[in-house]
Computed example of a mutant assay.
Amino acid sequence: MGFHICTACGTQFDERLKPPPACPICEDDRQFVPASGQAWTDIAALGRTHDVTWRQEAGGIHSLQVSPDFAIGQRAFLIESPDGNILWDCLSLIDEASINRIGALGGLSAIAISHPHFYTSMMEWSSALGDVPIYIHSDDGEWVQRSGGALNQWKGESVQLGRSTLIRCGGHFPG
């Protein structure tokens, strides 16, 4: 059994013996299935060839990215806040160095995902950081490939996370 990750879009799937026959996110018009076909990996294999790199973008804002680039080159942001830090979007890989660095910065109070191309390994991130709640808009709920108790699907045009506000902007996906 394993949690397979699509190498084209970086999305992690529920635990299963064999990889899924296809990735619904890649089969959607907003993504693509590579000409070579669907391929799969997992976090352990990805961690043997890739790292998570950090960059200070501004005071209290850090970007995280898998290096070398993986899938569609997603980038996440750790936003420091007095009410608790928020991870905006996720990466397919989580590593011990990032877990430790986030802990040294005060941990996380929430993970907020902008749209399905960033669902990646959101459940792994949540679990590794103390079952941090994950917020996605319910309009994008059909795209979740790995669910769990930390997942919160919010409705409406905005939701408060302490002093921070998530706003549904629409665009690439409905939520």
Rank of each mutant, 00 (worst) to 15 (best):
Tyr119Gly: 00
Val159Tyr: 12
Gly170Thr: 01
Ile102Leu: 11
Cys9Gln: 09
Ser126Asn: 10
Gly2Met: 09
Glu142Pro: 03
Ser109Thr: 02
Phe118Thr: 03
Cys23Ala: 03
Arg146Phe: 00
Pro21Ser: 09
Gln65His: 06
Leu91Gln: 07
Ile111Met: 06
His137Met: 05
Thr53Gly: 15
Asn152Phe: 10
Trp143Val: 04
Cys26Asn: 10
Gln12Ala: 15
Ala22Pro: 01
Ile86Leu: 08
Pro20Lys: 07
Ile111Tyr: 04
Trp40Met: 01
Ala8Leu: 10
Ser147Ile: 06
Gln65Lys: 13
Leu91His: 06
Phe77Glu: 14
Ser63Lys: 06
Ile113Leu: 13
Cys90Asn: 14
Gly10Arg: 06
Arg55Cys: 12
Arg75Leu: 00
Ile134Pro: 07
Gly103Pro: 07
Gly162Gln: 07
Gln153Gly: 13
Met122Lys: 14
Glu57Asp: 15
Asn85Met: 07
Leu78Lys: 02
Glu80Thr: 10
Lys18Ala: 14
Ala45Trp: 02
Arg146Ala: 08
Thr120Pro: 00
Leu129Cys: 03
Asp14Arg: 12
Gln153Ile: 11
Pro174Phe: 02
Pro34Met: 05
Glu142Lys: 14
Ala104Trp: 00
His117Ser: 06
Gly107Gln: 06
Leu78Val: 12
Asp139Gly: 15
Gly148Ser: 04
Ser164Lys: 13
Pro20Gln: 01
Ala104Thr: 09
Cys169Ser: 15
Asp69Phe: 11
Ile167Leu: 13
Ser114Tyr: 03
Phe32Trp: 15
Gly156Pro: 11
Thr120Tyr: 10
Ser109Gly: 11
Phe32Leu: 14
Pro34Cys: 00
Asn100Gln: 15
Ile43Leu: 11
